[in-house]
């Protein structure tokens, strides 16, 4: 019974991990059809921001929930203004340029923080579940993910900003003819996506540890989660996150974690072959 609960919690944690680390990419991809290969580095920058604030003595929750998103949001704004906005409509070129940016960020962080791995202590202690010791911080991540997704859903569904965003997503020409400048919307969307990635990086850093190259570990998973999910931001990420998270953890428990990851990647290839438009391109078509 305890074991079943632990497996369940681990699956839930993996789903939250996938959803949290890919939702920033999903915002940018869903609204702008831009694939940002520097996404993993945005997550990594969020982690390093949290680390820097933590060593400066700032409260860690304030650092990861407020400072990290703002810092990475500003970085995202700069990236959009300097690079991405020249490449709208050229999908492959955008992917290449953002890949270059990702290498650039890895190099910069290596220069500033060094190339060795660093960790942030988890601010929440573990608890006892039956005869097993569980990390309390996992629960915090699950909670944060639920809150974030709910907030995003409310904003997209029930506010004026969300309405404009969804309108621009469905038909940029109509949105522009109604007086909303698509360029401004794209700029704000990219910034918002980067900020959410920064938040994810800050929140996940205590569990994953930090390396300048750790963005690579996020980008692959985020990439397949978003692409397999399809164009709908929330439904897409949730559906593919649940699918991949469950597969990953089940195979991990049955065999080993590496096989879990490989099973997830193979499933992604098969799903893309069967549904090139992603899950939400076939099912849940009118969702957010």
């Amino acid at each position: 019974m305890d074991y079943a609960a632990i497996v369940f919690l681990e699956i839930l944690y993996m789903i939250s991990f996938l959803v949290l680390s890919s939702v920033g990419l999903a915002i940018v991809f869903g609204m702008m059809r831009v694939i940002n290969l520097a996404h993993g580095e945005f997550v990594m920058l969020g982690g390093y921001t949290t680390l820097a604030c933590h060593s400066a003595g700032i409260n860690i929750f304030f650092a990861m929930l407020v400072i990290a998103p703002i810092t990475v949001g500003i970085v995202g704004l700069l990236v959009e203004r300097l690079v991405v906005r020249w490449l709208y409509g050229r999908m492959i070129d955008t992917m290449l340029a953002t890949w270059g940016l990702s290498l650039l960020f890895v190099g910069l962080v290596t220069l500033i923080f060094g190339s060795s791995a660093v960790g942030i202590p988890t601010p929440i202690s573990g608890y006892q579940l039956g005869s097993y010791q569980m990390g309390g911080y996992n629960l915090f991540i699950i909670g944060i993910t639920i809150v974030l997704i709910t907030l995003m859903w409310i904003v997209l569904r029930y506010t004026r900003v969300g309405l404009v965003a969804r309108g621009a997503m469905q038909n940029p020409e109509v949105a522009s003819s109604l007086g909303y400048n698509p360029k401004t919307i794209y700029m704000l969307t990219f910034t918002a996506g980067a900020a959410v990635s920064g938040l994810a990086g800050g929140v996940l850093a205590p569990l994953t540890g930090l390396l300048p190259s750790s963005g690579g570990a996020f980008i692959a998973k985020a990439f397949i989660t978003v692409i397999t999910g399809g164009a709908s931001i929330i439904t897409g990420v949730l559906s593919s996150g649940i699918l991949f998270g469950a597969i990953n953890q089940v195979v991990s428990f049955a065999a080993n974690p590496v096989m879990g990851e490989i099973a997830m990647l193979v499933l992604a290839i098969v799903l893309l072959r069967l549904m090139p438009q992603g899950i939400t391109g076939r099912f849940f078509r009118n969702s957010t």
């Binding site: 020249w86 490449l87 070129d93 270059g100 290498l103 960020f105 190099g107 290596t110």
Partner: peptide, 20 residues
């Protein structure tokens, strides 16, 4: 002094932007 991937990344970004 300068990290290899920093230079390569910069070259890729500039190449895509300036001489596609």
């Amino acid at each position: 002094l300068i990290d290899n991937s920093l230079v390569m990344g910069l070259i890729l970004v500039l190449a895509v932007l300036l001489v596609p």
